Amino acid sequence: MGKDAKGGGKGKGKQAGGSEDGGGAKGKGKGGKAADGLGTCTYVKARHILCEKQGKINEAYKKLQDGWLSNGDKVPPAEFAKIAAEYSECPSGKKGGDLGWFPRGKMAGPFQEVAFNTVVGATSPPFKSTHGYHIILAEGRKN
């Protein structure tokens, strides 16, 4: 994953609930975003699924929906990893889509926006970047 020069898409959408911040700042930050750490953290830990074709990412998302999201549940990282290994076309797919911790500014465009604005434990809806179509699972955030 590198920097995106541009990218349109649905970076923000319905996401599973939760307010765990993984050690991020509480009560501080821009625009009143407080306890969840959204918009205030410096690092995020994430997994993702990357597909070149929208149809394939939609299949992966449907699998996540059928197993957890349709019931309002959060997708366990181990289960997300299985689907990433099956569907992701990124080399990280072999590691269950694990991108580890990365700082704000390393990923650009919609990928960074979605990664830093997805609640810990939640899964983003599919979105497009210049690299293809993604789904992100936010695992943690810290300063």
Rank of each mutant, 00 (worst) to 15 (best):
R47H: 07
Q15A: 11
Y61C: 03
G11W: 15
K30R: 13
Q54Y: 13
A108T: 01
C51E: 11
G13V: 03
A115L: 03
A138I: 04
K74T: 11
Y133R: 07
D98S: 06
K45S: 14
G72T: 09
V114Y: 01
G22Q: 04
I136D: 06
G105W: 08
A115C: 12
H131F: 11
A35N: 15
K94D: 11
G109E: 14
T130I: 03
F127Y: 15
P126K: 10
G140F: 11
V44Q: 07
S88Y: 07
G18F: 09
G23P: 01
S19I: 02
F127L: 14
C41D: 12
K10I: 11
N143V: 14
V44F: 03
K94F: 06
G93V: 02
G109Q: 04
G121C: 00
H48Q: 04
N71W: 10
K28N: 10
K3E: 11
Q112K: 12
G109V: 09
A46M: 15
R141C: 07
W101M: 06
P91Y: 05
G13N: 08
A60G: 08
T118R: 04
I57E: 09
F116L: 05
S70P: 07
G8L: 09
T40C: 07
P77R: 09
S19H: 09
K26E: 15
T40W: 02
A60F: 03
G11R: 13
P77L: 05
A34F: 00
Y61H: 13
R141T: 06
V75P: 01
G97K: 05
V114M: 13
E113D: 04
K12L: 10
A60M: 11
V119D: 06
G7P: 01
P103F: 03
V119T: 09
G29H: 13
G97P: 08
K63C: 10
K53Q: 13
T42C: 02
P126L: 06
I135F: 05
V114N: 12
F127R: 13
G11V: 15
E139P: 05
V119C: 01
T42L: 01
H134N: 08
L137I: 10
E89G: 10
H131N: 06
A108S: 07
K30T: 00
K62W: 05
N117I: 02
S124P: 05
K10E: 12
E89C: 10
P103A: 15
H48I: 01
K14N: 10
L69F: 12
Y133L: 08
G140L: 14
G22F: 06
G96E: 02
F80W: 05
E52N: 08
S124D: 10
G37K: 12
G17A: 13
G55F: 00
G97N: 06
A85Y: 02
